[in-house]
Design a protein around this nucleic acid. Sequence first.
DNA 1: TCCGTTTCGATTGTTCAACAATCCGGCAAT
DNA 2: ATTGCCGGATTGTTGAACAATCGAAACGGA
Lengths: 228, 228
Amino acid sequence: MTTTQPGPAASAAAARLRIAVPSVADRVAAELRLQLADGELLPGTRLTESTIAEDLGVSRNTVREAFAELAAERLVVRHPNRGVFVASLGPGDIHDVYTVRRAIEVAALRGGGSPERVAAVRAAVEEGKAAAAADDEEALGTANQHFHRAIVALAGSPRLDTIMSQVLAEMRLFFHRATVDAHFYRSYLAGNEHICTALEAGEPDRAAELMLAYLDRSEQKQSAIHGG
Amino acid sequence: MTTTQPGPAASAAAARLRIAVPSVADRVAAELRLQLADGELLPGTRLTESTIAEDLGVSRNTVREAFAELAAERLVVRHPNRGVFVASLGPGDIHDVYTVRRAIEVAALRGGGSPERVAAVRAAVEEGKAAAAADDEEALGTANQHFHRAIVALAGSPRLDTIMSQVLAEMRLFFHRATVDAHFYRSYLAGNEHICTALEAGEPDRAAELMLAYLDRSEQKQSAIHGG
DNA sequence: TCCGTTTCGATTGTTCAACAATCCGGCAAT
DNA sequence: ATTGCCGGATTGTTGAACAATCGAAACGGA
């Protein structure tokens, strides 16, 4: 007898969205990603397979698969026969991350982008201004990330989008201390606005130039904070 | 005379010398990567876990881990509950790959690069000319890859290097047919030389402009061949 | 004949238990 | 203090098992 039929409806939805339920390994990876972004797992922390497997109620093999995912994103590093550790970025890594950002964001800006994608950039700018007006520092941070994501999205390249996502995820690994400074993101607001207006004015090259200076300043600031 | 310093020097040296034997999963992934690059596994081919596990004499779980690695590199795609397939690039993907290359290679060129890195670019150009003189089409292809890898290496960014490696690996997936054309790479030789001389002449912006035109032409050619 | 449904075999997703290999820290001996 | 060795803990890898799911063949009704 047909009770609730999970077949047709579910498969239809899956076919429409082209995305099935995430596998358990994916969910474990997502959970760990969340804890990494929230700073619950600090750089250098060791992640023992058995512990995580027990904590999340999954098999050790599944945890292992999740680790492979995270290692590919450079969020954790594998030391053979020693375990996986939360990635810790040294001064060289900071410069490297900004090098990638310079390449990607400047290139995306130079391409100009369709009007609706430019509008998305504008929306991120306004989101940041609203967060500043409300004195919501956390919202300001996410708005800033939305801004840069929207910049990269100008290129309309899925691959560049995922690269940017990974880079931002890497940066969140060492952003916690900096976020303590309440006025940290606020100094970027005006810069974002300038870039956006230049973009809207049909001057992508000038916008790219502004972004380059922006990223250089940001890197300098980050290096000063960390850098040891 | 053992320097038991727990500082950065020790960890850096440890990281450098930590070239332990690759894990079995890594070796499986490497073997599959090789077969993919050689065209023994054509796009769309299904890779069944048990078959590969048996063929390579490893466990199914290990194969699964290797698949995770390859999936992260976009060389294979996972269809949940259906299996993994060799990635096949559609017209949109070709454009996307070239978008990434434009961003990365142009940015690397704009940075100029140290003299020895420029020298590496020159070496790749000469390698290509030698291969052309010897009528060795395969060597010509690898020389071309060395050239573009050397271009990206100008930036001195490990992350950009690995991104470039992955992009090139993706391209090898659909380059086999094109390689049949004996004069395919030869048309790029002069362009490479121009870019290199501009770079050596201290005109990185002009070199970047040349590279941009080069990549646009190359994408057009590829789209014409494939594109369906 | 055509089309929807049902069954069935094969493959994946996931878990579990085991084992060898390896590493870390401590301890003894020199 | 250095060396060598031992013991515990963790990883790397295997093999087997089971439910869930998919594709296709078999089936039956119009």
